[in-house]
Design a protein around this nucleic acid. Sequence first.
DNA 1: AACGCGGCCAACCGCCATCGC
DNA 2: CGCGATGGCGGTTGGCCGCGT
Length: 254
Amino acid sequence: MGRAPCCSKVGLRRGPWTAREDTLLLNYIQAHGEGHWRSLPKRAGLLRCGKSCRLRWMNYLRPDIKRGNITPDEEDLIIRLHSLLGNRWSLIAGRLPGRTDNEIKNYWNTHLGKRLVTAQPNTRKKPSHKKRKKTKAKPTLEPAEAPKPKLHIPKPIRVTSLSLPRNDSFDQCNTFSTVCWSQGKDAEVMQNGTGFLSAYDHALVNGSDLECHSRLPATQDDNDFEKIYDEYLQILKTNEDEAHWESFAESLLI
DNA sequence: AACGCGGCCAACCGCCATCGC
DNA sequence: CGCGATGGCGGTTGGCCGCGT
């Protein structure tokens, strides 16, 4: 442990990405696919660390990113999922088509968390990072504030990769994000790389029927997701039944 | 016009999990 | 099995910008 930050290497750029860097990264990934982040910047001609490239791609350059304007339905879903899953942003994001975990995290911290604090003053503290500037050290705890016990919750199964090879060329890459790369707006519901799960969520979010045609062969996973979706719908019908929601959330984490 | 404050959000950091040798 | 490399995640930071004074 104690590995040095990857961007601390001499000569690597940090900070905001330029349009040129974006183009380089985009072109490279379109040509060679994502993955191998460590060596990607060198091969793409970028003076960035792999982590930085990955983050930029995941949060900004991916073609399926839907930016801004969180709809009330999405907001409701975020609140519900957060109440069930906690700060499992990637899990929550996986169920919101086109939204990134970073975006949801930011939205929560700037909008929802604040609102909930107002509603329930004792339930959450929003760390005000302002006027802490220039201080790299972690803020000291308030006297009354007990140190947070660190819990390591088992990570959820990632559904984004669907057990497919993660680094082939774009032609070979079989992920939904690739399949839908150029399908335009109509394919948007499928474009977040979570495949049919996202399509289901889209139906939930929009409250509309949705035909979802998986391009992958039917698998056991498909059936599992079908079950999850059915369960999700049932819970929505019963609405405020917290016990149902909790058991559903647990099922997602298995 | 100048200044300070606070919100927003892109990007970074540190840690853990997983993979491959 | 152990270890190093890599990917991924959640927490945090800091720059920019709008607004109020």
